[in-house]
Design a protein around this nucleic acid. Sequence first.
DNA 1: TTTT
DNA 2: TTTT
Lengths: 159, 159, 159, 159
Amino acid sequence: MAGETIITVVGNLTADPELRFTPSGAAVANFTVASTPRMFDKNANEWKDGEALFMRCSIWRQAAENVAESLQKGARVVVTGRLKQRSYETKEGEKRTVVELDAEEIGPSLKYATAKVTRASRGSSGFGGNSGGGGGGQSEDPWGSAPSAGGGFSDEPPF
Amino acid sequence: MAGETIITVVGNLTADPELRFTPSGAAVANFTVASTPRMFDKNANEWKDGEALFMRCSIWRQAAENVAESLQKGARVVVTGRLKQRSYETKEGEKRTVVELDAEEIGPSLKYATAKVTRASRGSSGFGGNSGGGGGGQSEDPWGSAPSAGGGFSDEPPF
Amino acid sequence: MAGETIITVVGNLTADPELRFTPSGAAVANFTVASTPRMFDKNANEWKDGEALFMRCSIWRQAAENVAESLQKGARVVVTGRLKQRSYETKEGEKRTVVELDAEEIGPSLKYATAKVTRASRGSSGFGGNSGGGGGGQSEDPWGSAPSAGGGFSDEPPF
Amino acid sequence: MAGETIITVVGNLTADPELRFTPSGAAVANFTVASTPRMFDKNANEWKDGEALFMRCSIWRQAAENVAESLQKGARVVVTGRLKQRSYETKEGEKRTVVELDAEEIGPSLKYATAKVTRASRGSSGFGGNSGGGGGGQSEDPWGSAPSAGGGFSDEPPF
DNA sequence: TTTT
DNA sequence: TTTT
């Protein structure tokens, strides 16, 4: 393919994803991402929310199943794929058109997630969720899950 | 800001992220994403890997800590942010320039993740890792983690 | 602003741009870009058109005037800006929502333009149109407008 | 192809494009785009230039010839294509790597161009150039080239 | 190394 | 119709 309109949307799920299957058994998940831009209000001297973009998305196969399993209403995600237009007819026989994102890849955003993962859980249960609403108590980390970091920051070359 | 060059990269971490702190205590994580395009070879009639793009990335604050905690070498990610150029001098005094992605958001890709999440773990331990290479044994799901799906697929309007 | 959904669309104008002015005198041009992806049909062993995306666009100020002056139905363009959603009510009182591209920059594509520019015209009349369908007779170039090129191609470093 | 890193850069040519030909006769144009972000300085309460990104670009075939013909140093452009990395060896035998934009489409930006096009020139000489520095006197427009606009602005539905 |  |  060439010449598609590629787009990346960052935002929160407006509801739990819906998982369906085609007659031939292929999984497809549908969900809507609310993307809210922030703008700096010079007068109020503060950040304010702009108007949200609600982008309907669909994703296929294994990714669809993973999305349905691991994402819930409120989850913040990064989604990328092709912008498409779909035509359909209303019950009244009117023709309508919707813009959708045919997602190629999606991931739960790590921007605000605060879940601390214990060293013990690393490699077994993995990253502790990203549900915007929920959260969910993480167990204590007896070894201290602080980043191993080490050393001060310096502005040295990157490789 | 306006007029930045926004970019989204999808690929796998070439190594574990490195977490550092600025003198003032702000966290920054650095990592490289290898993005390998696939192209259809008409002659061989099969998909082949193109040449990988290795994109150096940095991410700040809470996201940096989350990245360091939850992503490892091999993890497939979706990263979006601003493309930047950074100048530095080699030890020999030569001036060089590197292109980097100043990441705004990142998420572990759900495309190939096969980790099944038990119903029990939903809401507590969350999504079970995404390390491209690794994996890591997931616990059995006694209730069957099959998508609740239900209903046949149809091509109906999206809302 | 931060967190907007940035998008680039490449395609052809479905009609001449419409230029309007706000009460305060600001110019705004509206137009629709038809973006047609191409996909390789493995069976037919040839490229075929995919389904077009029709993206409604608006652009402001000087750019709006330039667009109205220099672009016509059929012109191929590269447009980039923010994806937005706009709500409105139909005459029947129904609420509808449309996705639009609030364009920041636009340029007539140089991909297929065949207009030859005479050396004489360089710097005065400039580039000779870009109407996808039309074309339009260009004047002869008495000196030969062939690229000065020179030298064979080599794969040397880029700077 | 799938999984490429698509990117759009907006900025000004740092020099005239260089046109070359492969041994087999294919045209390729090389040029660098300087993309300068603008950021609002809250303290100074004014817009300031950020640090420029200098993106090396190449474009092929007809587009290459058109670029060489119609764009000059300083021209503002919108370029979109695939981000690539190219390896080469310095004369000293060192291996280096550069990031480049393999451009698919490019157009001279209509954002700031002020050239007025007479009705007479429409369809013959076309749009009056976009050379950042130049400008170039346009002839008078005897019929008045004012946008036909008409009617006040209203916020009505887009189709 | 460019531009408003 | 979501989130910090």
